[in-house]
Amino acid sequence: MATKERKVPALVDKPMDFCPGCGHGVVSRLIMEALEELDQLDNIIFPIGVGCSSNLGAGLECDRLHCCHGRAGAVATGMKRVNPDVLVVSYQGDGDAYNIGIAETFNAAYRNEDITVIVINNTNFGMTGGQMSLTTMEGQKTSTSVHGRDCSITGYPIRFPEMVAREFPGAAYAARGTVTSPAQINKLKQYIKNALEAQMNHEGYSIVEVLSPCPVNWGMTPIKAMERIEKELIPYYPIGEFKKRGENQK
């Protein structure tokens, strides 16, 4: 029986500092696989967020810039405007992209910048020890919502890709995937590829949010963390493409 070789792309083929069972490792590998398959590994700049996403800035042997916390949307704008034919992909967490960076994230989408935004949504501030973020679920206990998130005074978890799809007619692509199973991972990779292809063809702004486990801060084993995503997160944060390529107004 013939079997296909599966090898981690050289760019990310190195030890990562992420916690055991963290989703970042899978997502960063998927981005590189997608770039490899699209023959774009030598045509990429990553503006990288602050938080666990910073780990990607540590050893990634390609053009990258570690941005001020929350500002990757603005940095990506500057990079893309002066390099229209280079892929600019921001890699950020939910705290970076949505809490502190919502103005830059929102406005880059609003202007329909020709960039791709990858947001790792693990429903908390992972790097700083698991504080509440804009994506923390109602009732979820974090180190700053010790009795569980009270949405009546802290707001409800934000669904940004849906907002992009609904509110920004020019945006090219908006999707949410997850890493809970081989099938979901394969689907997510296709979403990432779609987003990158949208950028390659100058179709407009693209965003892929990833529901990603944070076993350490959730106080769960990696397997239980995947179950939590399936049972608790997906009903609120649906998986799918909210805006497909070709649906945008030009």
């Binding site: 810039l65 001020c68 949307g73 603005a74 704008t77 500057g78 990079m79 390099n83 103005a103």
Partner: peptide
């Protein structure tokens, strides 16, 4: 030219362009 959403965004766009 980008009319930025804030001075904060403006300087960060400059960071992006300058880095390039």
């Amino acid at each position: 030219f980008v009319q930025a959403e804030s001075e904060l965004a403006g300087i960060n766009m400059v960071i992006g362009a300058s880095a390039c």
